[in-house]
Design a protein around this nucleic acid. Structure first.
Lengths: 208, 208
DNA sequence: GTCTATACTTGGATAGAC
DNA sequence: GTCTATCCAAGTATAGAC
């Protein structure tokens, strides 16, 4: 990598503008012209650097996804029990709602319906998140009573679905209060599950 | 109502075509031309009968929403405890995933970002679903220990978010197996909550 | 590598014949 | 009430000057 610096800079500016446009206008509003207007550069640059609008949108998801995955991994590594994991998950997810990462993902998942060539690219970028959630749930639930009642894979799928759905609802009306209450509720739920002995009070290997 | 019959018939055909197009092509693919091609009628009819594409999409959500709300109300009325409510919710929601009602709603919520005039109309049509979920949760949880731990309003919000998120994920790859497992998991969870005495074993007023 | 100009396509919407 | 024809705006993408 490190090819010319100037080209890489411009690519980054385009990707950044694509992210901002997806956040503000959604998939249907993320045209080459709209992205160029957001970033203050020429529309033709998108095609020179990425070849198509679709490919710059995929690059946008790659960029936020890598950045946020790093944040989630770092935060998860700090958690040594389910209560802590729930708390950091809430904290990081709230950052996401604000930063727009989940919005970018949700818009691209919804938009994939209209573009058969986009769909497989989005699938490939959503699955790592489900796998990551499964890893984290498994750290505390795999060998516990909870793990046999609720397979980590299924819990992880539900958690990711819940996060995506919360994004849809909370940005529809701009209501963050309800989401806030839900995370406090989740903290209480994690404490209850731990108190009931369904999950070990501490432990779980380090996050990978 | 009952105005000319012919006009009402055509309106219904257009709305039906809009629903099918939203299901198959998503919001970004639901153009007037695409809807007309799906329904086999002229594109100009949409503007004659509805004035704009936006308004026919809103009518599409109205139609599925009314129809599905009736189905949910009827099903919920049968449930006399939380276990039954969970089971019927799963059954009805699986019908929805297949029929496409949730898909229509999700696509319009996501699409609302790109059309400021669409957003308030969608908000007004999503809120009744959150209110309905709250009513149902409250029937069994309001005066129980669960109700004081987890306010029905917040639980309802989470349930709706989960349903919307499951739609996004399950239709992204066409994976219905994971959703199936989740509903069996929910059945078990409802049974556990009841066994723990967090919720009355029977009761809850009739559904409105 | 970036800009201007432009070709071509699709989409929203209307006019006017039937 | 429905269809054909058409206008115009917006979108993707490319060619070619700089």
């Amino acid at each position: 990598m490190a090819e010319g610096t100037k080209g890489a800079d411009t690519r980054a500016r385009i990707v950044q503008a694509a992210i901002e446009t997806l956040r503000a206008e959604g998939y249907a509003g993320a045209s080459a012209r709209a992205i160029a207007a957001t970033g203050g550069f020429n529309q033709a640059l998108i095609f020179y650097h990425f070849g198509s609008v679709r490919d710059v949108l995929i690059a946008a998801l790659d960029r936020t996804s890598e950045e946020r995955m790093a944040a989630y991994r770092a935060a998860a590594a700090e958690a040594t029990d389910l209560v802590e994991l729930t708390r950091v998950a809430g904290r990081i997810y709230r950052e996401d709602l604000a930063s727009g990462h989940v919005k970018v993902m949700v818009e691209l998942i919804a938009g994939a319906s209209s573009d058969p060539e986009l769909a497989p690219a989005i699938v490939a970028r959503v699955e790592p998140w489900i796998a990551f959630a499964r890893e984290q749930v498994a750290r505390f639930a795999e060998t516990s009573p909870l793990g046999s009642m609720a397979p980590p894979q299924d819990v992880a799928y539900a958690v990711v679905a819940l996060f995506l759905g919360l994004e849809l609802l909370s940005h529809l009306e701009g209501d963050t209060a309800r989401t806030e209450r839900l995370f406090r509720l989740a903290d209480g739920l994690a404490a209850t599950i731990t108190a009931l002995g369904l999950v070990p009070p501490t432990g779980g290997g380090g996050a990978s």
